[in-house]
Design a protein around this nucleic acid. Sequence first.
RNA 1: GCCGGGAUGGCGGAACUGGUAGACGCGCCGGACUCAAAAUCCGGUGGUGGUGACACCAUGUGGGUUCGAGUCCCACUCCCGGCACCA
Length: 849
Amino acid sequence: MREGGVRWSAPGRTLSLRFCPRTTRRSRFMQTDYDPHAVEREAQAYWMEHDSYRVREDPAREKFYCLSMFPYPSGRLHVGHVRNYTIGDVISRFQRMRGRNVLQPMGWDAFGLPAENAALENRVAPGPWTRENIAYMRSQLKQLGFAYDWSRELATCDPSYYRWEQWLFLRLLDKGLVYRRKAEVNWDPVDQTVLANEQVVDGRGWRSGALVERREIPQWFLKITAYSEELLAALDGLDGWPEAVKTMQRNWIGKSRGVQIRFDIADAAHEPLEVFTTRPDTLMGATYMAVAADHPVAQAAAERDPEVRAFCDSCRQVGTAEEDLEKQEKKGVRLDLEAIHPISGERLPVFVANFVLMAYGTGAIMAVPGHDERDWAFARKYELPIVKVIERAEGEPVDIDAGAFTDYGVLVNSGAFDGLTSADAFDRIAEHLAREGRGAVQTQWRLRDWGVSRQRYWGAPIPIIHCADCGAVPVPESDLPVVLPEDVEFEGVGSPIKKDPAFYETSCPQCGKPAERDTDTFDTFFESSWYFARFACADNDEAMLDERADYWLPVDQYIGGIEHAILHLLYARFFYKAMRDEGLVASDEPFRNLLTQGMVLKDGAKMSKSKGNTVDPQAMIDSVGADTVRLFIMFAAPPEQTLEWSDAGVDGALRFLRRLWKLVHDHVEHGPVDVDAGAPEGLADHHHALRRKLHETLAKVTDDMERRYTFNTAIAAVMELINEIPTCQDGTAEGRAVVHEVIEHVVLMLAPIVPHVTHVLWRELGHGEALVAHDWPAVDERALVRAELEFVVQVNGKLRDRIRVAADADEETIRERALAADNVQRHTEGRTVRKVIVVPQKLVNVVVA
RNA sequence: GCCGGGAUGGCGGAACUGGUAGACGCGCCGGACUCAAAAUCCGGUGGUGGUGACACCAUGUGGGUUCGAGUCCCACUCCCGGCACCA
């Protein structure tokens, strides 16, 4: 049972001696000095012995699912992890004190590239390497005292985990949400292998140094685009998400309304060119066309013209990363074709250009250099005409020679459409084209389907068998999981399972003839797209999810790095909706509230081994203890902001905990406290003042922890409160009782942040029941009463004086007192008072001529 | 290149809804304790001028709105995150 909130002078209390430290079990004398390691050992032993963080589903209690993004087991925790997990732990512990049934699980995002790299470097297979890392990092998390329910731990590299995503993949395949097509990868022609984008450095393979080529291979895709509309619309309902993240996702999904226009080619036998534009109002300014290097028109031209062929080949000598493509110098080659403008009938040259992407829209564009910056730069370079067709509605006329004008405006040089606004012209031109059968209004999305095939070893096998006769055949459910062999030799490049007949040789489930398994593995975002659901029922080997998921989901608070704002969070949202439509979960969105933490920097730069500016949290835990690390990291900056690491700041945190320890020690050493002497009624002024400060602080800290998540200001407020304690150490029983109330509340308020030291201090304060079972204290409204208020007085917005007035003074009185203040008199003397603005509780501004 | 974010003392940061700029901590300076040092405790600490009361300047840069701007608007500089195969 929980001990109630701390109550002071409860009516009818007969025992006035609140505690007797000398008779408390275990500690006859409190340690004089703060010994973080002894304290942390004791607290952790208690939690383990009592299984304090094990949670069970309890429909009678309000649940709170608090989740931090699980780590990739790279070997050791880094400071970013410590920050992420401390934030999650503070929120979890706070919510628990608020009476919620809190689930805080932890697991391992265990598949991924680094294990393969480590395998090459150290000649350890990815499996054992990963599991060793997990064991070490788990011990680190335990040392940090995070309140995880370890019984739910999972690792995505375990077949008991990935079998269910193989199962779901086949369900989605069945449903038509999975398909196979060719798609481009980074190909290293020397190592004969596919490279990840990060393995392409300046266009070359990181190991071989060879120029990377884009190459097409067959891959599996998930139809995330089937959910484009819902993924976009549902963002509006995610009130608990940061605006910045929602904006990024909206832009990523990129819904746009435009017109698909057909341009005939002068050679009547030629297929027409289809383009998509969001600016049909600029159609009359189109002076040339451009197609992607992979566009059939460019490919056909390459057959005829060696120069075009060379250009198209050179376009392939770039990785697949959009950043690389966009940063290239805009180049093109003119084709031996002319397009016909659908309205003017003018002939337009057609280029193949490296800035047109086959993956977006139709792979062809109409270029309007007057009103698009890229088109403008390209036109300048190749001396193509630039025509102004949009004019500003008012103000200076547009100078098209200085640069493209991309705003909306009024049409000029557009024949029958002159004088229309851009918005009207959009509709009129779209109608015109539709009538002529040359175009139609269309919605275009930037979002592309999710390619999930990876040509790598250390991932979950894709449960498909390729049969010469039957094609791609799903592995029967009864044969799942397809287990990844872990006892492999990992040397050189290429995936071991692609060379392992024992893995890939099998028979076709349909016809029984010899067939081969798919040797690709899933993108690791696949695992991280549903792990949060599996934590609800990680032990179920009969089903992916069960009714426990209905109790815990959705996640009430998700915490992770801002770098996951788009990909991970969008894939997880998509997965959740797909799982919902499979009847696996009951809600629409996986994460009700999202907190995106900032990076941790050292000397103004991201920590990295190459820069040699890393901080190892383990060394810190070893020297100053977990509580100090937790305290510093929460005090140094609010969670969403980048955090600048400071060793000096760590010392400051340790010093604070020593002071706190000493404060409690000295207080306890004084012997029992008569708490009734601190009854709120009739306290001396300075005692009432401290008590008011306490309850004001409690109100602020509660708000900071619950609503604002600004733990740095919560800690600062507690420090301020502690700094006021000496005002009441006056040797009176009343002062001592108030100080006692303050100290107990300080320990409670700090409990979510520094759980070990507060656990021990709470016991030293004479409580038989552990702090972990205690509720968050309540604010005593009676303590907040003030007789007087201070107002700041400004003259013309500059601070000139301060006045104290009775709390219930009316505005007229405040105004009079403000005008009468000495320094206000000096600044208003001989000038006319024009206006007096009174801001309640705060300030008076006297406006003079 | 495109999308998102940030910039406040010597440093990390505070100022929550347009209302006291610099809370809290670090560092530094001075003092106490000590044979001495460390640790600890007490006091001071944005800049300039003034013995002082005070005054002026100051939130990346330049403009604007307002009685009042760190906060809102416009333009720019630099830094950070993401860009679909790092996680």
